[in-house]
Nucleic acid binder design. Structure first.
Lengths: 197, 197
DNA sequence: GCCTTATGGCTAATCTGATTAGCTATAAGG
DNA sequence: CCTTATAGCTAATCAGATTAGCCATAAGGC
């Protein structure tokens, strides 16, 4: 048996791909092993358990998303930054629904958990959006949590394909961005409410 | 063996209780059977499969939530209705995190799915909130979807206990309500932005 | 109150998937 | 070329879902 010479990273990547393809809930170690051309028990040389693999996929997802978000937000502020953040998340979740789903149920193993660190970085980006809104210091925590809820809610529904949103999906998403902008107190020239488009 | 004389409803209720207690993901037929004082295979006389049980729990949750929401919103409109809706959901999810989680992954079996009907009723309540906001007809769909995202996002995070929100949870939640109100274009006497409590 | 019958519950067995135990060939370093 | 750590393997165990087939009992008809 020639050694494939796999690394944990490669195993996690294969798992992430399969989660996107087959759905996170249907991911099995057998599938991952087959994809990698090895037998299931051999995976334990790279990950501790299925739960460990799932947690690592969640971490990968959070890191990838963090990077996308930072790239998208670069040089923007206020509503522009908010829109960039939201679109980056939407784009990631659409491309990687299984990975995003991995993050939904994932818990933190402890203060050193890499997932916790990656999540914190994403939260940081959410916080950065608020700079342009002149939110009172005392309200910052609330605003971050609120934005997180809204973005996460959209992402979860998107990942689960829960809304048929057959038509007008893009339009609804733009409306969502405007909604958040208004909710944060954004004021824009020409009135604060828009009807469509 | 004295017949316990169980009904599907009782099985579903036991499953829902256990989901709340142990976590939806950890729910097994064995647990349900033990709780009911019967053996696991006997459950198949009442539900088709574990997946069927999970789907029924989701349906139960959606119905219970629908009822709570309607009661809470009765006689209210505008921001009052919005707040009542949000608080009803928060209250339900706090009391029944496992049941709510059941609804997250649940898909619809078809056009006659009872879960679909129950979900539609909840969406109806969300739509009713918008009456007080004078949203343009063309934007109603978007507003409903947007509100759904925000409320669902909060509920998912709450059910998963994802935010430690150790302190200020209530305050953040009130901020979330104000955020939605502003996002929907709510205008209130004395300025549209509040800073705290 | 007794007989019939549908059915709720049971045991035994199968199946899938995770996980463990213990073996072995090979890659990498000396 | 020899040594050694280890990636991968097979065989086996375990948990949990599900199926097959049996049987006692509750409910209704007489």
């Amino acid at each position: 048996m020639p050694r494939t010479g796999l690394s944990t990273d490669e195993v996690v990547r294969a798992g992430a791909e399969l989660a996107d393809e087959a759905g996170f809930a249907r991911l099995t170690l057998g599938m991952v092993a087959e994809r990698l051309g090895i037998r299931a028990p051999s995976l334990y040389k790279h990950v501790d358990s299925l739960a460990d693999l799932q947690h690592r996929i969640a971490t990968l997802a959070m890191r990838e998303m963090d990077e996308l978000i930072r790239d998208a937000m670069l040089g923007r502020s206020g509503r522009e930054a908010l829109a960039a953040l939201a679109r980056a998340i939407r784009s990631y979740v659409t491309a990687h629904p299984g990975r995003y789903t991995a993050t939904v149920g994932a818990g933190f193993a402890g203060p050193d958990d890499a997932l916790l660190a990656a999540s914190a970085r994403v939260i940081e980006s959410i916080g950065a959006v608020l700079h342009g809104y002149g939110i009172p210091e005392a309200d910052l925590v609330h605003a971050i949590r609120t934005l997180r809820c809204t973005l996460h809610g959209f992402a979860v529904l998107q990942a689960g394909n829960a809304f048929q949103w057959s038509r007008d999906a893009d339009e609804s998403f733009e409306w969502l961005i405007g909604f958040m902008d208004r909710g944060l107190g954004g004021v824009h020239p020409g009135g604060s409410r828009s009807s469509s488009g």
